[in-house]
């Protein structure tokens, strides 16, 4: 057991309390909607960052697993035979299988070729969703709403309960990803990112490691898809289109790839930006584009990464030798993918 685990659990609990307290302090339905949106897309971005930030695998097709989670869950619930937790497990399991098959082919390729083949698979899945009309409803999506029958005394038909449920699931997923992020597996993945040849020489099965994290990322993305399906009470082919992948990439770039919670911050900022820009102007593309350019060319990294680097610099300046404990030492490789 890792020493930081208790601390992570504590912080996770605090996060959860804060997430649950916010709608109580500000009882407004819009805030709840907004936070569920941040939770769903934040989780998608976090899962993608397992590939991008941790392992250096730039996937252009991550939304495929978001869509697969949403569709499998939605179809099972509309079938009416199973309860919500069972449908969730089945959706996650099904997506894991899908990610395993696709990943087994994709992780053998490198760099831009990996990106393109993940994109190709995503487009393929998107076109299946579009053409298999009897099952998926084609371009119109799963119609007629997704039923939310109560289970174990929990009624997700009630908006407040739905929100609380999503928050709990979200924090649980974050804790799982945090575990991976700090585990020996996580550090092996960083080594693969920074120097695959070295990892190979050290006897690491690079392909298997990559496949492992690919499947894990797919699983987390499917949970995000389930949350979104629960919220909008439907599943739509746009969930699996490349624009959704693009948005997730933008979120992690906006928030930062090297700070653990960076992607969530990115999701939060993008949703906030999107929310207000959509209200103020119909030229949101123009505004969003300029913001992107400002961040990419101005900050040159995500907001959280920028803040972390700035703070580390300030600390280093004031207390040159005050870096307590091995877990807190930044590995030199950490900054490589950003710089």
């Amino acid at each position: 057991m890792r020493t930081g685990l208790a601390r992570d659990l504590g912080i996770g609990l605090l996060c959860l309390v804060a997430l649950l307290a916010l709608p109580v302090l500000f009882p407004h339905p819009s805030l709840r909607d907004f936070l569920i949106y941040v939770i769903a897309y934040g989780l998608l971005a976090m899962s993608l960052n397992l590939l991008v930030g941790l392992t250096g695998l730039v996937s252009f097709g991550h939304a495929a697993y978001f869509a697969s989670g949403a569709y499998v869950f939605g179809l099972l619930m509309q079938g009416g035979a199973v309860s919500i937790p069972v449908a969730m497990l089945a959706a996650v399991g099904g997506t894991a299988l899908l990610a395993l098959v696709i990943g087994a082919i994709c992780v053998r390729l490198k760099e831009i070729y990996f990106s393109f083949i993940t994109l190709a698979f995503q487009m393929f899945i998107h076109s299946i969703i579009l053409t298999w009309v009897e099952l998926t409803g084609g371009d119109q999506g799963l119609r007629g709403g997704i039923p939310r029958p109560p289970f174990l005394g929990i009624d997700l038909g009630e908006a407040g309960t739905l929100y609380g449920f999503c928050a709990v699931v979200f924090v649980l997923c974050l804790l799982v990803m945090r575990q991976v992020w700090q585990s020996p597996f996580g550090y092996t993945l960083r080594m693969i990112r920074d120097n695959p040849a070295r990892a190979n020489f050290l006897g690491v099965d690079v392909v298997r490691m990559k496949l492992g994290v690919f499947v894990l990322a797919g699983i987390m993305a499917s949970v995000a898809g389930i949350i979104m399906a629960l919220f909008v009470s439907g599943a739509f082919p746009e969930f699996g289109f490349w624009t959704t992948s693009g948005e997730a990439i933008f979120m992690i770039m906006l928030g930062g790839t090297q700070v653990f919670l960076g992607p969530v911050i990115g999701a939060f900022l993008l949703q906030l930006l999107n929310h207000y820009v959509t209200i103020w102007t119909h030229h949101h593309g123009l505004v969003l584009g300029i913001v992107i350019l400002a961040i990419v060319l101005g900050l040159r990294r995500g907001v959280a990464d920028y803040a972390a680097a700035w703070l580390a610099e300030r600390r280093a300046a004031s207390r040159p030798a005050a870096v307590p404990g091995p877990a807190e030492t930044p590995a030199p490789a950490e900054t490589k993918a950003v710089g």
């Binding site: 770039m253 593309g285 584009g289 992107i292 990419v296």
Partner: peptide, 13 residues
């Protein structure tokens, strides 16, 4: 690669 992707995405928007 992602930085290049983002700059291009901004140009498209």
């Amino acid at each position: 690669l992602l930085m290049q992707l983002l700059v291009c995405y901004a140009a498209i928007l």
